[in-house]
Design a binder for these strands. Structure first.
Lengths: 124, 124
DNA sequence: AAACTGTTATACTTTATGTATAACAAATAT
DNA sequence: ATATTTGTTATACATAAAGTATAACAGTTT
């Protein structure tokens, strides 16, 4: 899996990294049990500091996407808490849909975009 | 419309303020042509600095939710650019749906949440 | 023993956020 | 006319967040 960081972005590097790994999982490029590079290797690879990678990994661990093991390094391990996931989804969607509604985007148009994104992810 | 700021939140005050005004518009509590309090008045009201309110208003203006007039102050004025709105929606949804998909939330479950939120907004 | 894991600690720079005063220009109200 | 109120801009400061840079520790693997 390739990681691309936009250094001119306002989004923090560790957030970009976190999101790209989540994208990798959503598109099945990363699967349960897969190893990620070590914090030092990935930091070197991208050209950033080890602590920035470590921060991304730590957050991914807290959010239930990774397990960090001294033996195996960072391993994809999804902790599926569906109720919690749906409540987080709801909170995030509220903000985004509010903006869309202000701009007169209809409910069916939103559903359409949701389906399109879903298809993107399924194709990888 | 009431504004409630959570000072212990990690979310910047001007972002919280921006979002609450967008929520107000989405729920029709704020409508085209309505006046918002002046930057100084609202700042005093909430108990924050004038510049923080000004930053929120400036962003809302840039994003096409407000017009700022020396005569009338801050007035709700939606600049509906639907294509742009849908592309922004798509970009935002990608991140959020990726997380949901990782947690095995199904497409129909997402649609369900979308409908629920839509109904919330319509009822005000 | 050597090299590699995540992890933690410390120190520093840069940027973002929020506050505090102050002033300007245009519009409104008295 | 004068005073007040509007958004707007500028400057300065304090605090927090983000990122970098070394260094070290404790297990694991080779």
């Amino acid at each position: 899996m390739y990681v691309e960081i936009d250094f001119s972005s306002e989004e923090a590097i560790y957030i970009q990294l976190r999101n790209q790994i989540i994208f990798g999982i959503a598109t099945s490029q990363l699967q349960e049990g897969d190893n990620l590079p070590s914090v030092r290797e990935l930091a070197d690879n991208i050209g950033i500091n080890m602590h920035t990678v470590n921060k991304a990994y730590t957050i991914l661990k807290q959010d239930g996407y990774l397990k960090l093991d001294r033996r195996k390094g960072a391993v994809i391990a999804i902790d599926v808490n569906k109720l919690k996931a749906i409540e987080e989804l709801r909170a995030n969607l509220r903000c985004i849909l509010a903006e869309a509604i202000c701009k007169n985007v209809s409910c069916s148009e939103i559903h359409e975009v949701v389906d399109q994104i879903f298809n993107e992810f399924e194709r990888g």
